[in-house]
Nucleic acid binder design. Sequence first.
DNA 1: TTTTTTGTTGATTGACGAGTCAATAAACTT
DNA 2: AAGTTTATTGACTCGTCAATCAACAAAAAA
Lengths: 195, 195
Amino acid sequence: MPKLGMEPIRKAALVKATIVEIGRAGSLDVTVGQIAKRAGMSPALAHHYFGSKEEMFLAAMRHVLTLYGAEVRGALAFADGPEQRVRAILAASFSPANFRREAIGAWLNFWLMAQTVPQARRLLAVYHRRLRSNLLAGLRPLVGDRADALANGLGALIDGLYLREVLKSGPPDGPAAVASALDYLNAHLPQGTVK
Amino acid sequence: MPKLGMEPIRKAALVKATIVEIGRAGSLDVTVGQIAKRAGMSPALAHHYFGSKEEMFLAAMRHVLTLYGAEVRGALAFADGPEQRVRAILAASFSPANFRREAIGAWLNFWLMAQTVPQARRLLAVYHRRLRSNLLAGLRPLVGDRADALANGLGALIDGLYLREVLKSGPPDGPAAVASALDYLNAHLPQGTVK
DNA sequence: TTTTTTGTTGATTGACGAGTCAATAAACTT
DNA sequence: AAGTTTATTGACTCGTCAATCAACAAAAAA
């Protein structure tokens, strides 16, 4: 029953299924069959649309990063002043949409992939740069030339908090993570600018 | 030419080779064949000694953690006072022995494995607890009841710094990482206790 | 209506890799 | 010397999986 215009629908379904399956498996050892099944189609069709498994992974990674970027932008739009901007970034980073098991698992695996797949490395580098410049914009008015080191530290801390969440049992605790990061930030500010 | 007493030698060689190969591949997609070859023996022999690939991975992980633990203990032996203890832990964490490409890559993969292999999870949990209690011992005299939150933050920061090193090109910069962590610590101390 | 394009899948190919087994050989024991 | 244990490997089994292909179906274009 070939309805036309299936391509975007199928691709979206596959991307979503890829993320879910990677999160579920906790690794990239996921067969095209599993992904296709979850997306409700045959493995052959998955190949038809993406050409290869790697392309599927990359599309999934792009999707995760895009979502995250959108969330940050959205939060930033409402932020008032540098301090609120930094807060907004942190809140977006640990928002329920991003800070949930599947996404965290997927994220960790993309990191792994970035070690060996140049495309993935590039994607991750883009995310890094964006996060960094967003943080810097907020931090510079607050701490001047120490902003650079602080942005690095905060970036690493965010990644570390993600990493640690992987091992915890129970649902991820976004607010606690935000609190941790804010605490870090706060300690570096001329006393208590951020409460 | 069966010399006796080969077992420990072979096992050690395999563990080492496992770490190298995982680091090289940047993932756990490493064949027993590759590992065995690097260790200078047939795949069959590798199976003979370890029974399964997973056992090999776990042994490698145990080895990495043991090395790290030993380094921390060693550094701690010379540490004088709480502040020096914390410094010692950080220095050991980013020492050349631990903070090098292969080990970092292996570490990241173990993290991944911990998501699904209970044994691996347990090993990582042990490392976590030890790091935590070591940090706490040093921090409590310095910051009292805020030590708990600080230890968590520092732990996450350390992990994050490892993670970030994966993506950088060029050799890992241990001292810079230590400086980052110290900076974090310093910001939380009643002014400038740690310089 | 014929042709082309788009959607879809079952079956197959081809490669690869974990783990087993049987066989060989050197040492050590009795 | 006969028997046992340890070391070692080549050959093989068995399963899995990415990717391809041939074929069929429905819509759109001609």
